[in-house]
Design a protein around this nucleic acid. Structure first.
Lengths: 324, 324
DNA sequence: ATGAAAGCGCTAACAT
DNA sequence: ATGTTAGCGCTTTCAT
């Protein structure tokens, strides 16, 4: 390589990295030679010297799923722009695997680590005194000093309820996931409080169950037989909402005329296929992933941000709450 | 590190890698020291010397989606056992991005590359004369010499039809995706041929459309109004099947008594939530990913396998075809 | 403006 | 059984 351009290896390095002061002709000549040989620098050798690998690790504590993917895409997006690559590790909710991967990543000298999962609930820090910065995405760390990027689920619930109120609904019910699930309780509380601020309360006690369509159907049936005059249901997930939509449809109720419906997640597969299409809350997972990656880059460059960063949700209106 | 154990760096290397002949005591002492210091070998330096990085790259030509994830998990699974890591690259169906990532992976000296996408249709090889082995997973390469691991979709369609025939159905219809889509035509042809082998033919011409529930509903309505006596529908995807299930339900047809239903993909979200739960064809994507990774490892170790490897599908029976 | 040479952290061949 | 040493491919300082 150096031979072809007729210069020394040091000069090649300078030419290719745009450092030092070189004659423009030399630089051009070297670049040409590199092109011709299809030369690609050995990243290992470079990192050995610079100490940086331009690589970040991403540890998914739960099997790579519906939530992890948008996060991953967002992160990859932000990092790709900085010519960095992502090592993917699926720890499958297993502490042993997680620690194993952590060691692997450290031995590979990643510049930083992003930790994600499919639940927003805070988790124990992945490690203490790590030699590289760590950012938590979607989930947060129980250590308030750790940098976490999380969706503001209360904000999402608030938007859902306010949207229904703006549509003139007053008897609003809430069907959601398991009571022990952080997201379920946070959203339920925010919904209740938003109504309370208007002097209202839920048309029925919160219906806790599973994150499934089957539960949505079942809960809707319960609602139809017990609560009267319910004119809107805010659901803790799109799957639940879709189940509710089906049950209402089976019972001859018109959506949104008789009952308006709002879901949560804005999961395309659910919201588009539902009849009618579902208004839903979007947590902007991709944005969270991107944001986490950007904060990680900042930390790598010596500007760490501490503590949880809340990101607002968006309401995506569709036919299930169409007014007029 | 060497100092703490009171030995030379060479000895440390031997002790930690279990090579050379060392006194057991020395080995133990070194290992203890490593533990104490939390020492993790620098992978860059190691790979600089050995030429191997214990890393493979995975390029997803289509945005990481429902198909890529199980493939990814499968691959990660097989590679993790060999203490290898996966670099994830999302090329987003963009040739420029793909080539950029290819260069990135090569500069990082990955030991091999897995290429995946969300369509099974053969694609142009990602590069010629690459210095590392490449295996295609789910998609295949147009170069018959390249190693590809693909689902035998015709086998899947055959199983679906045979299952329906075994259930005593004789007037079988087929609703599927776009006619220009490889999977749609392969499956449709196999379904037709399987029936032909029994001296039968489809109860109606193949209904090509979209891979959506909406199309499933629409096509089912068409079928109800034109074809008579249809007692089973084999669908090109679970989404289509679910749409069909809803339309049949709305029309008062009982599944499976009046019409039996088989989907394709065995996508949990669809098959479980459908009423009734859907019998479906599983392409075992995770197995494909695992298999691709294993073949890649073999190639890395000097035992390359050439040409496309077909993997059979499985039929997962559920209530939509329950007999008796 | 360019070349020479040291050294990043590790492994492996060789010497002791 | 252990230590010594020469690189792996690159960057970077210091001479020239």
């Amino acid at each position: 390589m150096a031979a072809l351009a007729g210069v020394s290896t040091g000069t090649v390095s300078k030419a290719l990295n745009g450092r030092g002061s070189l004659h423009p002709d030399t630089r051009r000549r070297v670049q040409q030679a590199a092109e011709q040989l299809g030369f690609v620098a050995n990243a290992a050798a470079r990192s050995l010297h610079t100490g940086r690998t331009y690589t970040v690790g991403m540890i998914t504590t739960d099997t790579i799923g519906r939530f992890s993917i948008p996060l991953l895409i967002g992160a990859e997006d932000a990092l790709g722009a900085g010519r960095m690559s992502v090592f993917l590790c699926d720890a499958r909710d297993d502490v042993i695997r997680e620690q194993y991967y952590l060691r692997t990543l450290l031995s590979r000298n990643v510049d930083g680590i992003i930790v994600t999962g499919r639940r927003t609930q805070a988790r124990a820090p992945i490690g203490a005194g790590l030699p590289v910065p760590v950012v938590y995405a979607f989930i947060s760390s129980t250590d308030p000093d750790d940098c976490s990027v999380v969706p503001d689920e209360a904000d999402g619930a608030r938007r859902a309820v306010q949207h229904l109120l703006a549509a003139g609904r007053r008897r609003i019910a809430h069907i959601t996931g398991p009571e022990h699930h952080h997201s379920a309780t946070v959203r339920a509380r925010a919904a209740t409080e938003t109504l309370a601020a208007e002097g209202l309360s839920l048309a029925a006690p919160v219906l806790y169950g599973e994150w499934s369509e089957a539960w949505g159907r079942q809960a809707a049936d319960m609602l139809l037989s017990t609560a009267t005059g319910v004119d809107a249901v805010f659901c803790g997930s799109d799957q639940i909402a879709r189940g509710v939509a089906e049950a209402l449809r089976d019972a001859g109720r018109d959506i949104p005329r008789d009952v308006a419906l709002v879901g949560f997640d804005n999961w395309d597969v659910m919201v588009d296929a539902s009849r009618p299409p579902l208004t839903s809350i979007d947590m902007d997972l991709e944005g969270i992933g991107r944001s986490a990656a950007e904060l990680l880059l900042a930390a790598i460059n010596g500007d760490p941000v501490h503590g949880p960063q809340m990101r607002p949700c968006r309401l995506i209106p569709r036919a299930s709450t169409a007014m007029g």
